[in-house]
Structure formats: C-alpha cells, structure tokens
Design a protein around this nucleic acid. Sequence first.
DNA 1: CGATAATGATACGGACCCGTAACGATCGGG
DNA 2: CCCGATCGTTACGGGTCCGTATCATTATCG
Lengths: 117, 117
Amino acid sequence: MALEIRPSQALRLWRQVHLDLVHDGQADLSARQTAILLTIYLELPPHTVRGLAQQLGVTKPVITRALDTMGKLGLVTRRRDEFDRRNVVIQRTVAGALAVERLADLVVQRARDLGPG
Amino acid sequence: MALEIRPSQALRLWRQVHLDLVHDGQADLSARQTAILLTIYLELPPHTVRGLAQQLGVTKPVITRALDTMGKLGLVTRRRDEFDRRNVVIQRTVAGALAVERLADLVVQRARDLGPG
DNA sequence: CGATAATGATACGGACCCGTAACGATCGGG
DNA sequence: CCCGATCGTTACGGGTCCGTATCATTATCG
C-alpha cells in the first residue's frame, strides 16, 4: 500500500505546490508553521502549547507566536482549559479546516498532473 | 502515468516531511524561498532575478533578498553576465544540489511510509 | 496553609522579510 | 553621443520571527 514516487517526481511536485501557494497569495507559512497547523488538524485533540512544542522539537514561545499569527489569520483558536486552568487548548476553526482541505486538494491535483520520470 | 494519492495521504505526507525539515534543523525556508530554490535547480538555466520574479509572481527585491539568504547558506551563487553586464546569472552549488537531493529522498521515503487511506 | 512545580505568555535584542520607491550601472536606438 | 529603457540592488518603515530569560497564574503536595 506504499505510495511509489520517484525523486524527480517528488521535486517537481514540491516545486509546483509551493509555486501555487505563492501564486494564490496564501499566507506564506514557514515550515514550522505548516507543521504546527497540520499537526493540529491531523492529530487527535486536545492540543496544548507544551505538547506541540515537544512534537516539533522547538521552544514554547515558538508555538505561542505561531498561534498568535494563525489566530489573526483565523486558522486556529485558543481556549483556557477549565479543568486545569494552566493549560490552553488549541481548537480548530472552519477557516482553518478549509485551508487544510484546499492544501490537500492542491497536492492531489498536482500529483495527478505529474508526468512520468 | 498520473500519481494517485488521496487527500488524507497528501496531508499526512505534507505534515511528516515538514516535521522532518523542522527536526533536522534545516534552514527554515518559507514557501517563497522553497519555490525559488527548486525553480533554480529544476528549470533550465540561465536564471536571472527578473525571470525568477516573473515565474514566482513577486517583486524583484523579494528575489534579491532570497538570494542573499540562500547565498549565505551556500545554496546558490551569483555571477555577473559578461555579455550583458546588467544581468546577474544565478548558479547552482554543490551544497544546494545536495540539499535538494536530500529533500527529494525525504519526500520519497515518507511517501513510502504512508499507510492506506 | 506554604513551598514547589508546571503552564503559557511576555520582554528583549537581533535578525529577517515585506512592498514601495529610489538608485547606480549598463545597454541600445535615434 | 546621448537619452530612455532595463537590469539588479539598496533604503525605508513596518511587521514577524528567533532563542533566552523572566513573568503571572494555577495546580499539587507536604
């Protein structure tokens, strides 16, 4: 069930999708931000700042700042955990889900457009 | 010859590769920089600032700054065009080629690791 | 209670990036 | 030969990000 892809195909796919992201005027997310966003939307909740920092291997302020930025963009929301008020639970949004879905479709479409080799 | 991939697979692939990039302490390139780098290494030379700006749909200073950064990282080099000294020719480097190759292998490997669904 | 630990947010100095606008260098046509 | 067009770069003001260190808030445990 493994997905077979050749190195040259992988590079052309990577390039084309990034070109599309730049072209579409989407938010120019860094690799870190992309990893954070997709982790929130693919892994099981709840998500906390500390948990994300551990998974990414970065410091907590990195997560806090990324959440600030994505919050402004409407991609995620934060809410205080009522059972342990030290924690903050990161929540998904409709806009964020749509953005993730759009990325998925983009990758699928560009993969389909790939020629052999 | 199209590459078949499902949306959920695309997202998991995208997330895992970005996680790897962050983890490996690679340069945290933005989407724009990634598009520029891969364009230089996949499209036929010669590459100029103006040409890259057109392909990316961004302004020239964006390209200049990206080349500054990637130059410091050793991923690309610039050389004056001797036949039209207004032009600058962007050249590949061994380090850049290795980085691109590493990215390709990373995508291929993570695609192979994908389960069904 | 009070002390300790843990969480997320904030301050700081330094670096990078953005778009607009201006710049010097170079080419090319009249 | 000169003047306009074109090239890449730089200056500017504003924004974001980094890592380290510190902070206030909250929980836990003696």
